[in-house]
Design a protein around this nucleic acid. Structure first.
Lengths: 171, 171
DNA sequence: CCAACCATGTAATAAGTTACATGATTCA
DNA sequence: TGAATCATGTAACTTATTACATGGTTGG
């Protein structure tokens, strides 16, 4: 149930509308937690019902700006410090690896080298994003930087592993 | 929609009942693709309706053994070679990293060192599992081994990153 | 005989995706 | 004035989780 905490976390930084939040899901949080527009608007409604956020301002075009409440901040803090992170357990790219025996050796190697290539592409994309982002001192971006480093290390590891794995299949 | 492909992949190796499949989801596929019992039985029904698997034998206690059909094998092959893997984009442990600014520096460091510890535990668990598994020459385990190596490299990377990140927060 | 294990299913709920529907405001 | 952007919502559907419900078989 982390969508709600993603929303709370973003609002903890500063108030925002559903539309604003969507942009942040699509940019900074893109590789970490994805959400669709209907989820975000739905969750804002539920959070408001529960008193964890409140409408702090209304603007043109029916814009509603939400702000986190003390109860919301308490819930966020609780989640951050006391809820054990769940180990992610779903990767369709790794799932395929288990079934490479269904393919010829050549096809399997092609798949793994494709993985290496996709990982390399991802790394390039992250580096580009990193250069483009204004890493000004705002508190959220300090930690966004830590996450960025994770992404880079992950892509590197993924690429190396895939090349190694492809080699294992070369007799 | 990879649950269906996970089931097809397991049945491609050898026929199995829903119960058998569940055990394999809980063991070999545990870190790669999780599924619940009701999902597995439900998916077997749908796959059978679609002609991708068929009941190949019935045993005691209402046991139904399913086998993959040629159509199922074709679908599996298609998924393995032509469907682009989706980049996984959800990790609640990484999501927390973005919001560490809500915590004191000490709390944030504690979280990151906890991550390091959990990663180390995971690595230990994988090594133990690796030692316990009979890596006999069967085709599925050749590739299970590649996935195992991925898991080990991932845990190592995760631990190193978390220690590095904790250090970044030390003034 | 009873515990452990084998075995299948359904119901209710929650979470996530895709598509549809609508309209205001800004700026070139 | 027309395109891009801002802005919110709902409906239908799929996927995943949790809990319930039932019973047969094996082996110590």
């Amino acid at each position: 149930m982390s969508l709600r905490h993603a929303v709370l976390g973003l609002l903890a930084d500063r108030p925002a509308s559903g539309y604003d939040l969507m942009k942040r899901f699509e940019t900074s949080l893109a590789h970490v937690w994805s959400a669709t527009q209907s989820q975000v608007y739905g969750e804002l409604g539920k959070l408001a019902d529960g008193g964890l956020v409140e409408v702090s301002a209304e603007g043109p075009r029916g814009r509603k700006e939400y702000a986190i409440t003390p109860a919301g901040r308490a819930e966020l803090h609780h989640w951050l410090t006391e809820v054990e992170p769940t180990r992610a357990r779903r990767s369709d790219s790794l799932l395929r690896v288990f079934f490479l025996g269904e393919l010829t050796r050549l096809e399997a190697r092609t798949y793994l080298l494709g993985e290496a290539e996709r990982a390399a592409q991802q790394l390039a994309g992250l580096k580009e994003a990193e250069a483009a982002i204004d890493w000004g001192g705002d508190p959220l971006s300090v930690h966004g930087r830590l996450a960025m480093e994770y992404g880079k290390r992950l892509s590197e590891m993924h690429e190396e592993w895939a090349r190694w794995a492809a080699e294992q299949l070369t007799p």
